[in-house]
Design a binder for these strands. Sequence first.
DNA 1: TTCAAAATCACCCGAAAGTATGAGTTCGAT
DNA 2: ATCGAACTCATACTTTCGGGTGATTTTGAA
Lengths: 155, 155
Amino acid sequence: MASNLLAKNKLTILYGLCLAVLLFLLKWLELKFVIINNAYEVYMGAIAVFFTALGIWLALKLTKPKTVVIEKQVYVNNSAEFIINNIEVEKLGLSKRELEVLQLMAEGLSNQEISERLFVSLNTIKTHSAKVFEKMEVKRRTQAVEMGKRLSIIP
Amino acid sequence: MASNLLAKNKLTILYGLCLAVLLFLLKWLELKFVIINNAYEVYMGAIAVFFTALGIWLALKLTKPKTVVIEKQVYVNNSAEFIINNIEVEKLGLSKRELEVLQLMAEGLSNQEISERLFVSLNTIKTHSAKVFEKMEVKRRTQAVEMGKRLSIIP
DNA sequence: TTCAAAATCACCCGAAAGTATGAGTTCGAT
DNA sequence: ATCGAACTCATACTTTCGGGTGATTTTGAA
């Protein structure tokens, strides 16, 4: 436990020691070189600059880098976001109603259910679906749905 | 242009001025209170601590925040790479053959075509598909395909 | 206004899909 | 060995789908 505390504050202790050593050094220098009185300001300035630098260095060393996290969303081709391929729709020559029927077909609805959903007769839906199959050059609704999904006509 | 440069280095200039003022203050203090010689070290230490603190403060103020760009990927259900969701298959209790039939159904094949593809009779496929519908709790092949795609059972 | 495309609906018919039921075979696990 | 699940196939029947044809109404553009 005690060693753990010591280890955690290792850096702080180290810097404290460094400071002490430096202060000692300063005093030693002062004793060694007799400071010229009129250069006193210069001496002080030097100390100030030195310790400022030390402080800066300390701060840079000790502080965690300030990080600004920018979350960048990488390209999402998520199927939740469906963009209809109108070019293909036009290429096939599908009308609004036909596309609507195709979409409901893709949802697994029967012709009867589609007719109820769109408030038209079953026969009308049959006509529409027949036109869809003709235009898409498929034989069955399942194929139409398959094709529609591949061409991004339906989600 | 010149003003721009001035504005940019405003902080630096400010800190420089502060330093100068502080140095002046120090000298003034020194003149005012005659420093006791044997307390010289204490005085020096105070200066050291003060300027270290100044340095730290300076560093904290001046350091630019480091920007870290984290690319956050959002799940892409890209159809290019299809991974079958075996969990859902097991949950539904679909057998190998049933899944096979479902996959071919999703390709838009008729029961007849599926039976030819799998070298079995049409009736067999009907039985399989009926079981698939039962297990998936749907009424039609189109719904089964829809559901299968949503559950990632089929591509 | 006129004209074409779109949308609506109807009827018939055959094909396909789906339901229900029963039954034989195969194959792995107990 | 036997038991069950999976797979196979069949028959009979109903519903839905899809093709073909024709007709009427609506609508948007020339």
